[in-house]
Design a protein around this nucleic acid. Structure first.
Lengths: 250, 250
DNA sequence: AAGGCAAAAAATGAATGCAAAATTTGCAGC
DNA sequence: GCTGCAAATTTTGCATTCATTTTTTGCCTT
C-alpha cells in the first residue's frame, strides 16, 4: 500500500464537478415532507427551539393537518422531538448523541464497504478512484470546502456500490440527522488529522481494489471513528454542544 | 476455541424465562402508533392488502386524523407503502427486500458486537453466557420455539451491550420489519444448519470473552449471512414470497 | 416592590366537513 | 354474452372547527 501524501501545499488545477440534486418525490405530501426536512437539516431553526406550527403553515401555504403529518414523520426520523401538548422542538444533539450517530454511521459504512466488495464493478471502482484523485487535488489546494464535498461523494459512492436500497435510505437518514452539526466548518484545523484522513482514504481505495471486504470494513469503521473523535474535539473547544435551551431567535 | 456440539438429542431441563413486554409510551398518539405497529407486525393484514382507514378507525375508536398520522409514520418506518390517492398497503417483502433487510441487520449486529467489546462488563458477558447455555439446552431438546426465543434475547443483549440508544432503536425497527416473514417457523429443518448456528454462537461468545471487536464483528456478520441464506432457501421451497396480490381476507 | 394567583390568549390534539380522485356499479352497444 | 363507457358510490387528501391544555398577562396580596 503506497502512501505518498505530503503535508499539503502544491498547486493543482481541478474543475469542480456539479452534482445534480435529485428529488424523485411525486406526491404532494412527500414534497412537503422533503421541504420541511431540508428546512430542518439546513439549520434554519436553532437547536431546541420550538417549531411554530402556524408559522410553518403559512410559510408553506398549507393547513395544519398535512404539516402535522409531516412533523410526526420527522419525529420518527429523529430530527425533532414531539412533546405531548407542548409542541415540536428541534432535536438538540448533545455530545453523547453525536457520538452515537457517528458510531452508527461507522457501522453502516463499514457494512457498505463489506457488501460493496462482493459486487462492485471495475467501473465503479474507477469512478471512486477519480473522485479520490479529485479530492487529493482539493487537499493539496487546502480547499476544505471542495475536499469535504468530494469526500462525501466518495462515501456515498461506496454505500451506493453495496446495492442495498434499505441501507442507502438508512444511511441518508442518519447523514441528514448529523448534518446539523457543522463539523465540516473547521474540524480539520489539525493539519495532522487531515493528512491522516487522506492516508486512510488511500487504504480504503486499496482494500476496495483488492475486494478485501473484512479489511475494508475495519478500515472504514476506524476512519469514521477518527472522524468522530475529531468532531467531538472540535465541538469541545468550539461552540459547546447544546449550551442550554436558549433559543437565540424568537 | 473449543467446540463440543453434538447433533442434538440429550434431555436437559431448563425453566423458561418470562420476558416483560415494556411499552414506555405515554402520549395518546404514541399509544395508537404502537398498537397499529403491533397489529401490522403480527401479520393481521395479509401482504400487499389494502389497509382500510375507516375500518381501523372504528376498530381503534378514533377519527381518521390521528390514524392517518400514524400511517404516515409507519410508512416512514417501512412497514407499509403509501400510494398517493390509492391508500395504504402492507409492504410486501420480496426475496430481494428480505435479503436487504438481513444484510442491514447483519451490519447492525456486527457493529453492536464491535462496540460492545469496547465497554461490556464481565457481568453482562456472564448474563449472555447464561443465555447461551439456556439456548444450548433448548438445542439439545430440539425445542425450536424456546431456542429461537433465547437466541433473539442473546442478539438483543449484544446490541444492548453496545450502549448506543440510536443503534438499539434502529435495530428494533428492522427487527420489526423482518418479523413479518415467519422464518422462525421451520427454517432450521436442516439439522446441519442448526448445529452450525450453535457453533457460530460458541465462536461469538468466545470472541466476546476476549473482547476481540474486529473478530466478533466478522463472526456476527457471517452468522447473520448464514441465517439469511437459510431464510431465503426456506421461503424458496416453502410458501413463495409474495404469491401475488391475492388478499386472502376481505 | 416582589411573588402568587386567576383570567385571557394562544397553541395543541382530535373530529368533522368538503372537494377531488379512484373504484365500483349499471347500462348500452356490438 | 362480452366489452366499453358513464354515473354513482366510496375513499382519499386537506381545510376548517371544536375541546382541552398550556402559556402569558394582568392584578391582587403581602
Amino acid at each position: 500500500m503506497k502512501s505518498t501524501i505530503p503535508e499539503a501545499g502544491a498547486p493543482i488545477a481541478l474543475p469542480a464537478c456539479g452534482n445534480g440534486s435529485d428529488r424523485p418525490e411525486v406526491s404532494l405530501h412527500g414534497e412537503i415532507l422533503a421541504r420541511l426536512r431540508d428546512y430542518m437539516v439546513e439549520g434554519n431553526i436553532p437547536d431546541g427551539a420550538r417549531v411554530p406550527e402556524r408559522q410553518l403553515c403559512e410559510m408553506l401555504g398549507i393547513s395544519r393537518t398535512p404539516l402535522r403529518e409531516a412533523l410526526k414523520v420527522l419525529a420518527a426520523e429523529g430530527l425533532i422531538d414531539l412533546l405531548p401538548n407542548r409542541g415540536a422542538r428541534v432535536r438538540k444533539l448533545g455530545k453523547g448523541d453525536i457520538e452515537e450517530l457517528f458510531d452508527v454511521m461507522a457501522g453502516l459504512e463499514s457494512l457498505a464497504g463489506r457488501l460493496a466488495c462482493e459486487i462492485i464493478t471495475d467501473d465503479e471502482i474507477g469512478a471512486i478512484e477519480r473522485l479520490h484523485y479529485e479530492m487529493y487535488g482539493y487537499y493539496l489546494h487546502r480547499d476544505m470546502h471542495g475536499y469535504f464535498q468530494v469526500n462525501q461523494r466518495i462515501h456515498e459512492s461506496i454505500v451506493a456500490a453495496a446495492r442495498n436500497e434499505t441501507l442507502t435510505t438508512t444511511y441518508a437518514n442518519f447523514a441528514g440527522r448529523i448534518r446539523r452539526v457543522r463539523y465540516s466548518a473547521n474540524f480539520a484545523r489539525k493539519r495532522q488529522r487531515w493528512a491522516d484522513a487522506m492516508r486512510e482514504h488511500e487504504a480504503i481505495l486499496d482494500a476496495l481494489r483488492r475486494r478485501a471486504g473484512g479489511e475494508l470494513s475495519d478500515i472504514l469503521f476506524q476512519h469514521l471513528r477518527n472522524k468522530r473523535t475529531a468532531a467531538i474535539e472540535h465541538l469541545a473547544e468550539g461552540d459547546e454542544a447544546a449550551p442550554a435551551d436558549t433559543p437565540r431567535a424568537g
